[in-house]
Design a protein around this nucleic acid. Structure first.
Lengths: 218, 218
DNA sequence: CTACATTTTTAGTTTAAACTAAAATTAATT
DNA sequence: AATTAATTTTAGTTTAAACTAAAAATGTAG
């Protein structure tokens, strides 16, 4: 059994590893968790003793296979609960994070098995993030142009093809940047235009826009 | 905001107060919570400072109006979650206590408002215990003979009319004692016999039995 | 009413997880 | 390469909530 604090550290390290694809620094963890670096050092040493991460002094931390599975499981629970809150209790998708942050720590294998089934074994949470499976595996992602997506598909912006300033300014105005999640709500086959959701906003984009944005899909 | 430990103490004191209708002793709390009396003393002093209970050294504790409301709210959450686990996730009613014990500490007013609505504003949990309302009020109970109940009603055994040893031995065999919860699953109007649920068991009882058992109802 | 038993409290430790301040290491700049 | 800056760790405190052992208060039996 792991403590709430330990689970939160593992989760944070998992997210930071995904973002940077490298070992994560003590300071990065401290900043993300709004705590002090010295506290982080204490905890990573403890997690290293428990073989959840591998850690070398001054060299940062990386999750072990075991730690990664553990972290993915907490994230799985978080995202399943978010689906519950939105689909069943009719919360808005931007109101559920705080509550899921608590629910993710409830300990019961059986509960999650049943919750998953009750929700129809969803693959994504209400923010479009993928839900890891029981073994902690997340469906691998693939790079595409936004224009290749169809209705109801989702992607995360990972780059642009066209780099002219008008285009970049357009993206800026629409709050689209690296890491932005995009849901395709509708697609017109006649001209390739789309209706997409970005954060709380929904708007129309032309084929030309969609052909110049790279997204990562699942 | 109150800590998990504080909420658990308040809940325990609430239950003990209900059972004995008097102030609760430090030892009683310690026993129920499987902790040491000295730990209880520490905590009741803290709760008294916070005006959640009134406490005089060596004289035991009683909840203040504020503390009682707080405790009832934790119990409300516990019981609503139990309904969720049984009605929606199809757990058996004797499997849900441990999980609800964790869920009852999730902090979100709105969550409980919505959960309550989603479950159809239930009045009882799957064990037949009443669910306090938002203001911590529990529907007042009334003393009746078991034979006065109808199908789907519930009662808690509070005494007997007939006191012969055959009758008491019968009750003993059926595991019915003071405090035992009884659900009436079916009633035959022709002869007044009933099918009742007691703990995990379901069985048939005659009108004569039902006319000699007092129960408290809601 | 005294003597013993039980209950309760106090005083002092322990543990997990945070903190501060200072020391050590690594990185960056001139 | 030497010095400064930034990062990270160590050492020592703090807090909440538990614990043990001993002291104090209360309850009970002769």
């Amino acid at each position: 059994m792991y403590s709430l604090a330990e689970e939160n550290y593992l989760k944070t390290i998992y997210h930071l590893e995904q973002e940077s694809k490298t070992g994560v620094s003590t300071n990065a963890i401290a900043e993300r968790m709004e705590t002090k670096p010295s506290s982080v050092t204490d905890m990573v040493q403890k997690l290293a003793d428990k073989k959840m991460i591998s850690y070398k002094k001054y060299k940062g931390s990386t999750l072990t296979v075991h730690g990664k599975k553990m972290a993915a499981n907490v994230i799985r629970k978080h995202r399943l609960w978010e689906v519950f809150l939105v689909d069943k209790l009719k919360f808005h998708w931007d109101e559920v994070h705080e509550i899921a942050e608590q629910l993710e720590h409830i300990q019961s294998e059986e509960l999650i098995v049943r919750l998953d089934k009750y929700l129809g074994n969803p693959d994504f949470d209400p923010h479009g993030d993928p839900i890891p499976d029981k073994d902690g595996k997340v469906k691998s992602t693939e790079k595409k142009l936004l224009s290749e997506l169809n209705k109801k598909q989702r992607g995360v912006c990972i780059g642009v093809k066209e780099t002219g300033s008008e285009f970049l300014q357009y993206l800026d105005k629409r709050n689209i940047t690296i890491g932005t999640k995009i849901n395709v709500l509708g697609k017109e086959f006649f001209d390739g235009s789309m209706i997409i959701q970005v954060g709380k906003d929904q708007f129309f984009i032309s084929k030309k826009i969609a052909e110049n944005l790279y997204v990562q899909t699942n």
